[in-house]
Amino acid sequence: MFQIGDFVIYTLDGSVGTVIEVDQDRCHVVWDDHFVSWEKHELLIRDESVNLNGA
């Protein structure tokens, strides 16, 4: 499960973003280009190389 503050990668194009809200099956993500969108969990992977929150 994703948490607010997680760094994520969008699997379809490799975009990197930060989770700002979590819903049952979607995450609200602000991307590096400052675009914001809701994405399904299955299209995101946690970027473990930069997550420092211990999750």
Rank of each mutant, 00 (worst) to 15 (best):
I4W: 01
G17P: 04
F7N: 15
A55F: 13
V8T: 05
D25A: 07
V19M: 07
V22Y: 01
L44Y: 02
S15P: 03
V16G: 12
G54L: 07
V19I: 09
I9S: 09
V50A: 07
E21D: 15
D47P: 04
N53C: 02
L12W: 12
W31D: 01
V16Q: 13
T18N: 15
W31P: 01
W31F: 00
H28C: 14
H34A: 09
V19R: 05
V16H: 14
D33G: 03
Y10H: 10
L12R: 12
V36C: 08
I4K: 15
S49F: 03
D47T: 04
Q3P: 02
V36G: 06
Y10K: 12
Q24A: 10
Q24N: 15
V29K: 06
H41T: 01
R46P: 11
F35G: 07
I20T: 12
V19Q: 12
D47I: 02
E21V: 00
R26P: 04
G54R: 10
E48M: 09
C27W: 01
F2D: 12
D6E: 13
F7H: 15
R26Y: 06
L52W: 04
M1R: 08
K40W: 06
C27H: 05
W31M: 02
T11F: 02
Q3D: 14
I45E: 15
W38Q: 12
N53A: 10
G5Q: 07
R26H: 13
N51W: 01
T11M: 08
L44N: 04
I45S: 13
V29I: 09
V50L: 11
Q3M: 07
D25P: 00
V8M: 05
D6I: 03
V16W: 05
Y10E: 05
G14P: 08
S49Y: 08
D33S: 03
E21G: 11
H41K: 06
W31H: 02
G54A: 10
D32Y: 09
V30I: 13
D6C: 08
V30K: 13
F7T: 13
H34R: 10
F35M: 07
G5M: 02
G14M: 03
R46S: 11
Q3N: 15
V29S: 03
H41I: 00
F2V: 06
V16L: 14
E48H: 13
F35D: 11
D33F: 00
R46L: 10
E39V: 10
D13L: 03
G14S: 03
V50D: 10
V16P: 06
Y10L: 08
F7S: 15
V19C: 09
D32K: 14
K40N: 10
G14D: 09
V29G: 05
V22F: 00
F35V: 00
I20Y: 10
N51T: 06
V29Q: 06
Y10C: 00
R26G: 02
T18F: 01
T18A: 09
R26S: 10
H28V: 00
D6R: 07
D33R: 03
R26D: 13
R26M: 06
H28A: 07
G14A: 02
I4L: 11
V30G: 05
D47C: 08
N51A: 01
G54I: 01
Q3W: 03
V8H: 13
D32L: 08
Q3I: 05
G14K: 03
